[in-house]
Computed example of a mutant assay.
Amino acid sequence: MTDLTIKTLTDPVFLTAILVGIAVFATMMTLLPAFGGDPLKTRMKAVALERDELRAKQRARLAAEAERRSRGLREQQSTGMRNIVDKLDLRRLLADENTVRHLKTAGFRGQNPMTKFLFFRLVLPFAGLSFAVFYIFGLGVMAEKPTMIRVFACIGAAYAGFYAPVVYVTNRATKRKESIKRAWPDALDLMLICVESGMSVESAMRKVADEIGSQSVELAEEFILTTAELSYLQERRQAYENLAERTGLEPVKSVTQALIQAERYGTPVAHALRVLSAESREARMTEAEKKAAALPPKLTVPMILFFLPVLFAVIIGPAIMQLRENGGFFGDQPKATSSSSVE
């Protein structure tokens, strides 16, 4: 058995077969990466994809948790308000297209602001009436007045509560319009510079929003929202029209119409922005001149009530004090000596 094994191991044919097998195996191991690709790159790519997926899932989970924590109580309140509004059908009774437009102009978008608006219009009249009844009849205020006048005062408090949300939304919309109107010429100049430098309208709006935020947060918010709408709406015209509707300003409507016409007919956007920018600057200068021209009549009454009395006191006061020290206008005069007494 040992002799057979030694004879087999020393056989040249057997040794040649072993060497050929080893050579074939080494050749296959050498050429396999060339045909199968780089395994390291494949593994690194798979790891990168899996890492991105895990990171996206983790980020979405954290964002959902933060959103849930920040909106927990608010969503419960909104749900209760929504149930009351839906049961009483207040949208059909108290809301119309003008209400939605006013809320958008004031910066309230979505269904929750509309629900809260209608809910407070329902609740505040009863709250105002209850407070007025307690204040007038309970505490005895206006006791000397007739009962009918006191009842009318309570009804007036209820009406005030009913229109209080409308007044709040109107004031909020007015302040928001003023903020956008003051910053609009500067924003238009910045947009013109960005467009002339070769940037697209979306990139220009995003850049202007970053720069104009220190002057008007409302305008920066509108630019960011318009940029988002330009990216996902099917028609860009709708995004520009939404911007004009949310702001409710004529200069903004003019610019949006110019952008719509420029994209429809292929005219240069920079030329239209340059003309509108010059018009906005002139309009702002004209408004400043009007305010300056209206200043003297407004200062007449304060000057008469506050400045002139102090000025008269400063000018005439020392003279009056000197006259009082000298005996007044008709003080004692020295008597003239007669000639008889001298003699």
Rank of each mutant, 00 (worst) to 15 (best):
Y168D: 00
S214I: 06
F25H: 07
A17F: 10
V269L: 15
T105M: 05
L124V: 03
A153Y: 01
A262W: 07
G327L: 04
P12L: 05
T16W: 13
E235A: 13
A278L: 12
V151H: 06
L4Q: 10
R284W: 09
Q111N: 14
I18P: 00
R176W: 08
F223L: 06
R172D: 01
I304W: 12
Q234L: 07
S338V: 08
L9Y: 10
A270V: 10
N83A: 15
A23P: 03
L88K: 04
L225K: 12
I260N: 07
A95R: 05
E343R: 15
R74Y: 09
G36M: 14
M199G: 00
T79N: 11
E211L: 10
F14I: 02
E75R: 14
A64F: 09
A209F: 07
R284K: 12
G248E: 05
Q234E: 12
L9G: 03
A17P: 04
D52K: 15
L139P: 00
R206T: 08
A95F: 03
T42A: 13
A204P: 00
T267E: 12
Q58F: 11
M28K: 14
K104T: 03
A272H: 12
P113T: 03
K177N: 04
H102G: 03
P165H: 01
E97H: 09
P185F: 02
I22V: 11
R109P: 00
R274D: 11
L308K: 04
Q111C: 07
A220L: 05
R182Y: 12
E245C: 03
D38G: 13
P125A: 05
D332A: 14
K181N: 06
R281Y: 13
Y159G: 02
G161E: 01
A158N: 02
T300P: 00
D189T: 14
L54Q: 15
N112D: 15
F134K: 06
N242G: 07
P185N: 02
L31F: 15
A106E: 01
A106S: 04
E196C: 04
A164I: 00
T115A: 11
L32Q: 04
F35W: 09
R281H: 15
G213E: 13
A220E: 01
L323E: 06
Q261M: 13
S277R: 12
I304R: 07
S214A: 10
R68E: 06
L40N: 12
L73K: 09
L15F: 05
T10Q: 14
K291C: 00
L88A: 05
V195S: 02
W184C: 01
E67R: 07
T42G: 12
A272T: 09
S254M: 12
K57W: 11
L49W: 07
R206M: 13
P251V: 00
R264K: 14
L129A: 15
E53V: 08
V310H: 07
A244F: 08
Q215G: 03
M29C: 07
M303S: 15
L73I: 08
A183F: 09
H102K: 12
P296F: 08
F152I: 10
G80R: 13
L323D: 01
K253R: 15
I149N: 13
V310C: 11
V314M: 15
M81V: 11
Y163D: 02
T10H: 13
